[in-house]
Design a protein around this nucleic acid. Structure first.
Lengths: 193, 193
DNA sequence: CGTCTATTTGAATGTACTCAAAAGCGGTGG
DNA sequence: CCACCGCTTTTGAGTACATTCAAATAGACG
């Protein structure tokens, strides 16, 4: 049941986890199911958790002061769905995480998560690499948002995430790319696909 | 000489480094001076390093396919100046890092940097927390870039980084915020400085 | 089938950009 | 100490990219 997670962690390590480390993971991550449209996390929730997606798909989004939603991230199989800011603080979340499909995750609460760090250095290594990759990706996304037109961002999205294009609605992709759904529709009309 | 760096690392740890860990740092980080306009890193460089800013100021930027520069980050005292993407790969850098003032850094090469990780788990912890904070900040910046107008982004910058406003030229701030210098000038005209 | 949501379409509008030029500012050398 | 040079900031006119709002159409779900 925990195999996908153990495999994912080991892929980022030079040498695989030992049995004690693997047990620390399997003891602390519990399988949980979410139905489509169910919330894994809602803005204002104070309990924070970290969820590894085994199957299905989630979107992480914020609501701005005008009530508009902004999709920050899509989490599919073998990805993590969390509000990192609230996981590491005791403050209520600013983000929402909603299942876009019936999904299954391996989930850990903040307290148990800290136990991993405190007892096994290997998790500092794994999550360091993950955070670095996430930061590098966020930097690149920021560059694209400053230097690409809406059309270029959409073309880049299709090339980068072809498996998400027919899995996630256009309106949600538009929000992820920082444009309105109406404008994305017009882009699609002009340029094939 | 290494005091600012040791202090910075310890600030992010629950318990301070022991003498062996501190020695590992002082042995591997060398002080280096940069003159204003000197490059710490240029796009295309393959040698990669990580630099902790002791004094002065750097900008990290990329050049897009139209030849336009995009400032990604300003690094001042007690901050890090690096291209994380190229530090962890053997590939040439896509970023440029230029001193905006006469500056001093504590610098480490990739190879010695890996030695730290391989011998002392505490650095996985420290750089994990740093990468997580950087990612959280990058996410928030992306949200602002999608939900704020240029004027709101500038007001937010002033509130967030008051110490940088009179230290970094408007044109470079404009690039950081994803707008043209001309437009920033017009914003400043309308809304008191 | 009927309802609810997602996508498309169009017209009017707005925010920010481009390009060109003038004005301001700072450093340097005579 | 002043004059010049280079760089930054300001200004303005014209334009472009993307948004808003409203309505029609298409699709998905039960």
């Amino acid at each position: 049941m925990h195999a996908p997670l153990l495999k994912h962690i080991n892929q980022f390590l030079l040498k695989p986890m030992d049995p004690a480390e693997e047990k620390a993971v399997t003891d602390r991550f519990a399988l949980k199911a979410y139905r489509k449209r169910q919330y894994l996390l809602q803005a204002g929730d104070s309990s924070s958790k970290n969820s590894f997606v085994v199957s299905g798909c989630f979107r992480v989004y914020v609501v701005d002061t005008n009530g508009k939603e902004h999709n920050l991230q899509f989490a599919v199989e073998n990805g993590w769905a969390l509000d990192m800011g609230s996981l590491y603080k005791e403050e209520p979340s600013e983000m929402n995480i909603e299942a876009l499909e019936d999904s299954a995750v391996l989930q850990i609460e903040r307290k148990a998560f800290y136990e991993l760090y405190d007892n096994f250095p290997v998790f500092d290594r794994y999550f360091r690499i993950l955070a670095e990759n996430a930061y590098i990706a966020a930097q690149k996304r920021l560059i694209r948002s400053h230097s690409f037109t809406a059309e270029e961002r959409y073309a880049d999205f299709i090339a980068r995430y072809p498996h998400l294009v027919n899995r996630i609605s256009d309106a949600k992709i538009a929000s992820f790319l920082g444009m309105t759904p109406e404008f994305l529709s017009k882009l699609r009309r002009n340029f094939g696909k």
